[in-house]
Deep mutational scan, measured.
Amino acid sequence: GATAVSEWTEYKTADGKTYYYNNRTLESTFEKPQELK
């Protein structure tokens, strides 16, 4: 079976905060997504 690849990509803001962006739902969040835990 195919492994589900996380759609979340980790980015940093200009002031160094980490956030996560989902390229399928176009959602962004500062909290670590469930799929990455």
Rank of each mutant, 00 (worst) to 15 (best):
P33T: 01
E7I: 07
K17H: 07
A4V: 14
L36I: 09
A2T: 13
T18K: 06
Q34V: 13
Q34T: 12
V5D: 12
R24M: 11
Y19Q: 03
A2I: 14
T25L: 03
K17S: 06
V5Q: 12
V5L: 15
A2S: 12
T3F: 10
K17V: 12
T13Q: 04
P33Q: 02
E7D: 12
G1W: 14
K12F: 07
T25N: 02
T18A: 06
G16N: 04
A14P: 12
A2V: 14
N22Y: 01
T18Y: 07
N23W: 15
E27D: 04
K17L: 12
E31D: 11
T9H: 08
D15Y: 05
E7W: 08
R24L: 13
T9L: 08
T18S: 09
D15K: 04
D15A: 07
E31T: 12
N23F: 10
F30P: 04
F30Y: 09
Y19P: 00
K17A: 07
V5W: 14
W8N: 00
A4Y: 05
G16Q: 03
R24D: 04
P33D: 02
G1K: 09
N22S: 03
T18D: 03
Y21R: 07
W8M: 00
E35V: 08
A2H: 12
V5G: 12
T13L: 06
V5K: 09
N23I: 11
E35N: 09
E27R: 04
A2D: 13
G16P: 00
Q34L: 14
N23D: 06
K37E: 13
L36V: 07
Y20F: 06
D15Q: 05
Y20A: 00
Y21M: 08
L36P: 04
Y11W: 08
R24K: 13
T3S: 14
N23C: 15
A4S: 12
G1L: 14
A2L: 13
E31W: 05
T18Q: 04
T29R: 07
A2W: 10
K32L: 10
E7N: 06
L36N: 07
Y20V: 00
Y11I: 11
K17W: 05
P33A: 02
A14T: 09
Q34D: 15
G1N: 14
E10A: 09
T13G: 08
G1M: 14
E31P: 02
Y21Q: 06
Y11V: 10
G1F: 14
T25H: 01
W8G: 00
Y11S: 05
Y19A: 09
T13P: 01
E10N: 02
D15N: 07
T9W: 07
K32T: 08
N22V: 00
V5Y: 12
S6Y: 09
W8Q: 00
A2P: 12
S28F: 15
N23S: 14
E35H: 08
A14F: 04
Y11C: 15
K37F: 14
K12A: 05
Y11K: 15
T3W: 08
T3M: 14
K17I: 15
S28Q: 11
Q34C: 15
Y21K: 07
Y21D: 01
K12T: 12
E35G: 10
L26Q: 15
Q34A: 15
Y20P: 01
T25I: 01
E35I: 07
N22P: 01
T18E: 03
D15W: 06
N23L: 08
A14L: 10
A4T: 13
A4N: 13
E7C: 09
S28L: 15
Y20I: 00
N22K: 01
L36Q: 05
G1Q: 14
G1A: 14
K12R: 14
E31Y: 05
A2K: 09
Y21I: 11
L26A: 13
K37A: 15
L36H: 08
A4D: 12
Y21G: 01
A4P: 12
Y11E: 06
K17G: 04
E10S: 05
W8T: 00
K12E: 05
R24T: 10
T29E: 02
A14D: 09
E27S: 05
N23M: 11
Y19V: 10
A14M: 09
Y11Q: 09
F30K: 04
K12D: 03
Y20R: 00
A4E: 12
Q34G: 11
Y19F: 11
K12I: 11
L36E: 06
E35W: 05
Y21P: 00
N23E: 10
Y19L: 09
V5M: 13
T13Y: 03
E35D: 11
T13A: 06
T3N: 14
E7K: 03
K17Y: 08
L36A: 05
D15G: 08
Y11G: 06
R24E: 07
Q34W: 13
A4H: 13
G16Y: 01
K32V: 10
K32M: 13
Y20L: 00
N22T: 00
K32Q: 07
T3A: 14
T25R: 01
P33H: 02
V5F: 13
D15V: 03
T29V: 09
Y11M: 15
K12P: 02
Y21F: 15
A4R: 07
N22E: 01
D15H: 04
